[in-house]
């Protein structure tokens, strides 16, 4: 066990995967000499060489497209997209190519590719650097989509994603990159399991990635006011771990989903629908969502008002309690 930042944990996880399996190849813009703009791959080129930690041309469609070619020869590429807002040039390669290969080939061809995306806002960045686009990919059959929130999960989940024989979109909460936490040597948790961080009998907060810490802070604040509010870290978006969500709903009867993406057709909408389908009689209030407004991510100076805050989460909890 050791204490690491989320960036350090990703770096350690990637190093372990590369050491364990020489078919694992990292590719992306500025990931070699520089170690990536967030330093997630720092030191890996020195250790594994320029063939396995590849500084690519500046072309996202190329990164994913060539990763597919490598995977067709048995490699296991891990692509870095420099910022969330720059994944779109690769959209066709991800959505029409990567996601569909297996089904198109009648199950004959699998593509074990991981696409790492630093996601979300809160770092004062300029436009296109703070987006939350998980819904696009979760809406695409053939892709697995996961989202880590802590150093421990970052370390284990990146390795599990690399071991997966399916394509995995791997979200990293960039405003939590420098947060430290304990990392255990082993994990008994499956990649596609949600995690209950806190049990609550009044209300359950469901969050993933960067909003997990927000949800925890809100739950603590609510506890001070005498409410028992639980927190579920989703961890996996596709597939969704519905059974964990259902269990929690049965205990608390109230669910508030918190994410940075816009609520309109966001993951919260899917969770709300799924829970009302399966737990209708356990619900004491409608499932509520706290997320972005349906507008482009705003300029940095107003992002605090835009991002789901503890206050906004508490307001939703209040609303659910008083329903």
């Amino acid at each position: 066990m050791s204490t690491m930042s989320l960036v350090g944990a990703l770096n350690a996880g990637l190093r372990k995967s590369m050491a364990d399996d020489d078919r694992v190849i990292l590719m992306g813009e500025d990931i070699g000499t520089l170690g990536g703009v967030f330093r997630v791959t720092a030191g890996l080129r020195e250790e594994f060489g320029a063939d396995r930690v590849v500084d690519t041309p500046l072309a996202e469609s190329g990164i994913v497209g060539t990763a597919i070619g490598l995977a067709l020869r048995g490699y296991r590429p891990v692509c870095e997209i420099q910022f969330d807002g720059f994944v779109y040039p690769a959209f066709d390669q991800i959505v029409s190519q990567l996601a569909k290969f297996r089904a198109r080939s009648g199950g004959r061809v699998s593509l074990p590719i991981v696409i790492r995306i630093p996601v979300g806002g809160g770092i004062g960045a300029v436009e296109h650097h703070s987006e939350s686009n998980e819904s696009y990919f979760a809406h695409t059959a053939g892709l697995r989509v996961v989202s880590c929130a802590t150093p421990d999960d970052a370390f284990h989940m990146i390795q599990q994603a690399i071991q997966s024989d399916d394509p995995v979109i791997f979200y990293e909460p960039k405003r939590r990159y420098w947060d430290k936490g304990e990392v255990l040597d082993q994990s008994d948790r499956n990649l596609h399991e949600a995690r209950v961080l806190r049990e609550g009998s009044d209300c359950t907060l469901v969050a993933h990635g960067p909003t997990v810490a927000t949800a925890l802070a809100a739950a603590l604040a609510a506890a001070e006011d005498g409410f028992s509010v639980g927190v579920v870290d989703l961890r996996t978006i596709s597939p969704l771990d519905l059974s964990t969500l259902e269990e929690q709903t049965m205990t608390s009867g109230r669910v508030v989903v918190v994410h940075e993406a816009s609520t309109f057709l966001g993951i919260g909408a899917e969770i709300a629908a799924a829970i009302s389908e399966s737990c209708f009689y356990s619900l004491r209030s409608p499932v509520l969502r706290v997320g972005a407004f349906n507008m482009p991510y705003p300029p940095a100076k107003v992002e605090d008002a835009f991002l789901p805050s503890v206050d906004r989460v508490l307001a939703a909890v209040d609303h659910a309690m008083n329903y």
């Binding site: 813009e29 500025d30 070699g32 520089l34 041309p57």
Partner: peptide
Amino acid sequence: WAISTPTSVQS
């Protein structure tokens, strides 16, 4: 340069 990527690697 493109951030840390020199033209020799770029093209």
